[in-house]
Design a protein around this nucleic acid. Sequence first.
DNA 1: TGTACCATGTAATGGGTTACATGATTCA
DNA 2: TGAATCATGTAACCCATTACATGGTACA
Lengths: 184, 184
Amino acid sequence: MCMGALKYAILGLLNRRSMTGYDMAKEFENALFEFWNAKHSQIYPELKQLTEKGLVEYKIEISGNVLEKKIYSITDAGKAELAQWAVTPHKIPAATKDEFRLQLFFSDSIDNEQRLNILSAKLAEHENKLAHLRQKSAIFDHIADMSDAAEAEFTDYLVWLGAVKREESCCDWLRKCIELCENK
Amino acid sequence: MCMGALKYAILGLLNRRSMTGYDMAKEFENALFEFWNAKHSQIYPELKQLTEKGLVEYKIEISGNVLEKKIYSITDAGKAELAQWAVTPHKIPAATKDEFRLQLFFSDSIDNEQRLNILSAKLAEHENKLAHLRQKSAIFDHIADMSDAAEAEFTDYLVWLGAVKREESCCDWLRKCIELCENK
DNA sequence: TGTACCATGTAATGGGTTACATGATTCA
DNA sequence: TGAATCATGTAACCCATTACATGGTACA
C-alpha cells in the first residue's frame, strides 16, 4: 500500500536538517503526527538500510564523555531519489479503519439513547483534539503574510490547515448526527 | 491498536443477516469501504476462530450440484459479545498515513509551480471520489423523513454522511491550498 | 542520588495484503 | 466453450507496534 514511504519521510526530514534517529522519532511525534508516524524501532533499521544504499550517511559525535550519537545527513544520491518521489503522484490512501464508525454503523442493534451517548462522548473527544490543534497555530502567527513565508514554514502551514479542517469537519458531522438522533 | 475489531465487524454483519464469507468480503468492499475493509484471506480464518469460540455457526448449503456454501449466522453468545462491544468507548484512531500530505509537507524542496500541479491533480481525484460518494445517496432518497427510517437504514445514512463530509472538507482544503500557492 | 530524558538497538507479535491454489456455476 | 463470477482456503511477505535490552547525560 505505502511502498516504503518511510524511506522518503526520513529523506525529507534529513533534507531539512541533519539529525539523529532519536530526533526523527520526536519529529514524527510532533510535526508529522497528523499524517505519518514511526517509532524508533522502525527508524533505526531503516536508517541502516538507507546507509547501505548510500542515500544517507552519518558521522559519530560524542555527547558528554562517551555517549555516541549518529548524526545522519542526506547524500546527493538521497537528494536525487527524494526529488523524484516529490513529484510522483500517489494514490489516495484507503480510508482509515475507524472503530467508532463501525460502531455507529452497527448501532442499529442498540437504542437511540445509547447511540446519543456514544455520539456525545465522541464529539467531546474531537472538540478537545481540535482545541489542541488550534493551539499549535501559534507557531504560524508571526507569519503576517504567507506570501513571503519561508518555504518550509509555508508547507508546514498547509498540512496543519488540513489537519484543522479535517477535525472541524468531523465535529460538524458528529453534531449533525446528534441532531438527527434527537429528532428521532 | 484495533484489538481484533474485525471480529465485531463480522458479528455486526451477521447480526443483520446470515451470509457466507464471500458475501462478507463484498459487504466490506461496498457498504463498509469508507471506514473498514477486509479481504477474504482475513475473513475465512477469522470465521474459523469465531466458530470455535461458539460466537457464530454455519450450515452447509449446496449450490447447483456440488458446490458447498457455508451460510454463517450469529449465535446468542455472539449477540451478547456484540452488544457489549456496541456500547464500549473506542479511541480516536491514529491519523491515517497519507503519502500525499507527506509529499506536500516536504514540498519545500520543489518549486511552487510543481506544488500547484500536484495539488490540482489531487483535487481532481478527490472531486471525483466525492461525486461517486454522492451517487450512492440515491439509496437513501426514498427515506422522506429520517425520523421513521428503519434503524439499519438510519445508521447507514449517518456513516455515509460522515464519508461525504470528510471528502467535501478535503476538497475545500485543497482549494484553499491552491489559492494560497497562487498568491505566492 | 534519583529522575527525566537522551540514545541505540533487537525480538516477538499482530494485522493486513498479495500471491498461490483449487474448483463450480452461470450465462452468453 | 469461454469468461465472469461464485466460493473457499493457505502461504509468503510487509509494515508497524509493543516489549525487551542496555547504558549515558543533565539537572535538581
